[in-house]
Design a protein around this nucleic acid. Sequence first.
RNA 1: CGGGGUGUAGCGCAGUCUGGCUAGCGCAUCUGGUUUGGGACCAGAGGGUCGUAGGUUCGAAUCCUAUCACCCCGACCA
Length: 545
Amino acid sequence: MTAICSWRRLKDGHPRKKHSDRCEAVCTWIALPFCFPAPENYMGPVKTAISPTRAENYPEWYQQVIKGADLAENSAVRGCMVIKPWGYAIWENMQKVLDQMFKDTGHQNAYFPLFIPMSFLEKEAEHVEGFAKECAVVTHHRLEPDGKGGLRPAGELEEPLIVRPTSETIIGATYAKWVQSYRDLPILINQWANVVRWEMRTRLFLRTAEFLWQEGHTVHATAEEALEETRKMLEVYADFVENYMAVPVIKGEKTAGERFPGADMTLSIEAMMQDRKALQAGTSHFLGQNFSKAQEIKFQDKNGDIVHAWTTSWGVSTRLVGALIMTHSDDDGLVLPPKLAPSQVVIIPIYRDDTQREEVISYCKSLKQELASQIYADQKVRVDIDDRDMQGGNKKWYHVKRGVPIRIEVGPKDIAANGAFVTRRDLGQSKSMLRTDLVSGVVGMLTEMQDNLFNRALAMQKANTVEIHSEAEFRAYFVPDDDRECSTGGGFAKCWFSSEEAVQPLLDELKVTIRCIPLDSPKGEGKCFMTGQPTTTMGIFAKSY
RNA sequence: CGGGGUGUAGCGCAGUCUGGCUAGCGCAUCUGGUUUGGGACCAGAGGGUCGUAGGUUCGAAUCCUAUCACCCCGACCA
């Protein structure tokens, strides 16, 4: 396999000569066991739209894809990002689908306050400990002149307010008032909101101080019912992530050490990114009676007894956008799964003068209309014409970098042949098509692309998942590929293990975590890869985001 | 909070060690022209109180002090 060098394209005579040295260095990294091989017909260094490439520096590539696709940027506020229109449109599409899924499973939307009285958070001990260190705190409610031309906070609050890092406590306190009788249950509510977690280190979409998400909070009369809800919502997430985002996931249960603070059981879906690191894509928590006891969510059951309720919570965030980027994108930028692409087809008119323009534009408009009347995933195909005054090549790469699934170029020659020049983003090869074939085939193309993205990602995940039976094997598996900072090693390791305590020191050393105990792990017994003891627990181990 | 680094045009950087002409370069932008099935070329133009505040000096982007911001590593992180 060959990594493609993107540095060679620097012009001769460029003042920064060191780039040519760097180029040589880059070109020697040609035997990386990476999952994105050069094309079959590799002819030597080519120009990629994104620099560096995945193989050269994955974390930097990720940032550049976001920049190239104009999804988001850092803001003036430390750790907080600005989500730009193209990025936000992707999130909106995710919201639309998820929101319908929640409603189809009996949930309603509501909204709770951004601020939480500090005393609320204190009620559940584990919960406090889990979130205290990353809470933003409001202590004043007013500003006044400081006499030096600036402002200073005034009006200290009697009780500080926490900016919600998650809403279990404020929602629980509200539910306590709503629940009197078993007839009031279940409560099935979701909220779309922003939350703040004051993280020390942030990355666009993956970890930001403020992020957008949805959080479902439900109350049930019995543990069984709450458990069923917890599992059901994990299935909803898995369904969405696999069938809309085209990202294959592993459904599993978190170990005690990785659980949500205050939960009795945490389920998650884990996805593998192209650098083989794991990303938690969604979680669903069975909170037992921990929060109902802390917040007195009680009701009178059919026997007339006063009992505590059982609660759940579940959420996914804008982090999903990060997962989307890192799963499908390539060295030319973003690749969007058709079902979530804000624009599924873009038509680029090509003409030289005003006479041609009129002809080309009118052809494009009618083509757009025909394409947009096709139905894909229960909706009209989303088609845009890009008639901006911009050079053809630049315009083409603009849409490549933004990941538009199908690009259609129409010039006088195509019109003469009653056709168009068509490129699918994931394949990159263009072909001339007859207009009638294009219109009748566009839904098929989108469907195939959606499937191809999923299958490609699944193949990658499978190719980088191994079973490991000994410490030595485990160590060898997670050795980085080379000595670069950004280098990772390994992938997913399936291992039998006896307990978290037994493996923790090794995991800390290698910076590996237990992602989950897969729900479909084999029944039976194996030998712990560390201690050799018999055990019934098999986990997925990986480096993670 | 510990260690390291960086702040110079919209973006990316050089210049700082060794103080000295009008502070440069690439990309981007604007204008004119030539191009036109592909990420164009030629000519020209605009854009900077060199992070901030003091200090040393005839003279500071450059040296000194303080301060702020950001980045990386660690710690931390459903």
